[in-house]
Design a protein around this nucleic acid. Sequence first.
RNA 1: UCCCCGAUAGCUCAAUGGUAGAGCGAUCGGCUGUUAACCGAUAGGUUCUAGGUUCGAGUCCUAGUCGGGGAGCCA
Length: 512
Amino acid sequence: MAWLKVVDALKAPVGTTVTVKGWVRTRRDSKADGGLSFVAVHDGTCFDAMQTVCKGTLPNYADEIAKLTTHCAVEITGVASLTPKGGIELQVDPATGGSVTIHGLVDNPDAYPIQPKQHTMEFLREQAHLRVRTNTFGAVARVRSTLSMAIHRFFHERTFFYVHTPIITASDCEGAGQMFRVSTLDIANPPRVGAAPKEARSTSESTPSSPSSPPCYMGDIAPASPHADTPIDFSHDFFGKESHLTVSGQLNVETYCCALSRVYTFGPTFRAENSNTSRHLAEFWMIEPEIAFATLKEDADLAEEFIKYLVNAVLTERADDMKFFDERIEKGLLARLTHVLESPFRRLPYTEAIAILEAAIAGGKKFEFPIKWGADLQSEHERYLTEEHFKQPVILMNYPKDIKAFYMRLNDPGTDGAPGDTVAAMDVLVPGIGEIIGGSQREERLDVLDRRIAEMNLPAKEYWWYRDLRRYGTVPHAGFGLGFERLILFVTGMQNIRDVIPFPRAPKQAEF
RNA sequence: UCCCCGAUAGCUCAAUGGUAGAGCGAUCGGCUGUUAACCGAUAGGUUCUAGGUUCGAGUCCUAGUCGGGGAGCCA
């Protein structure tokens, strides 16, 4: 007798004795053959469950087996045989060594939240600790894992090195959005500039409840502090300066790129934006490759090859789950992904995109927001381009410099016939999601970079180490960021980003 | 953060300002190599919270909390 994962047990030779361990998906009873129960068991190793046929002659049939409900934990031994439809099931008969062991019943099955029926995503989100036992969330979890592995494999096969960029940053120059503060200061009574520093509130080894622990204020904190208007003195904080959770590993990974040539990060990223949408999370995972001796064209080539590699990986490695998504989550998903695999991504200069949108408006297309050269595209404009006009992924390139970040490389005047200055930035737009990748060629010329930092009133001093890269052996380089959860939405057809990460963090949402 | 919509049984949803309902799920029984099984019965309610209007509020008003769709920000 061998304990097999369900994925392997479903391929067991007829006649062999097999043990499976997992959770009951459904139980149905029959009076045939003197009484028997069909108990479907899944262990998460594949989409399908193993059907077991438990005979009424089993010693614990009436007391235990006939009472099994959804998600009871069981261990079942039986003989592999063919179902009338040709699949593999286990015949569980005490006469041939069959047995059913209950590891854990479900208390009060009447009120168990997960039932053998269709639930809404919103409800399951409130049961995040249990939802992974359902078909949909099990499939999402397997696809997510498969994509993670494929990402590392893609880069590994191309001599990229995986760089662990920091989660905590005391650099104030990442500039990609609102940040979460990281601090060990007493939030109710922080040290103020000019005030006498409090001793022994030192960050590292302070005892959890020292005798001098601060008073606990109910309601509003720090009532009527005489120093309330004085800035907080962060020199007393853990890092001796303000620090935050990272919003991007890009600036750090650029340093490694300028030594290892081809690198990437893949880790969690944090944005404290008050974004309440189905496409934003406060904590999400991002993949950021960076390539040296490369221009925007190589960057776009890499992005396209990357997306196609990942789509292909998930189609071939998780065919069972993808079939489910195609049937139950988004009809036509497989056709859409196959189309993405087979068609080249449309490269489109921003300046040309504006012309297409203006022509569309002239042709009667209505947009909520006006469009003109120099303005950023709205979601509706991006959707029009990728979903209606081209009906395929689009790589928009060379945006006006005034709407993009300081580190993006300034293009030569007149690139693409643009009426103003542009930078070598690109966004990959995909039908159904919109922007999935944002990237650029980085400004490698120190004088141009300094001009941009000054133009945008950024704290030049903070960028000393970033500027060093341009002083010591500078090189053209480029990279992009891919939001991992948006990729999962794209390949699964799931609608809400909170349903493709195990425990979503969003405004007012950090349960579990 | 802004606009719109919503919150009633374990779940999905009904209920003219006047007796709280159905389907699914659960429990019990029947039938059946079943697989979203089917048939019958039973149990299951502080109608999100706090105020208010009213003889009377699930229903109307105010505030709040949470959820959904869209927008902004972005990945």
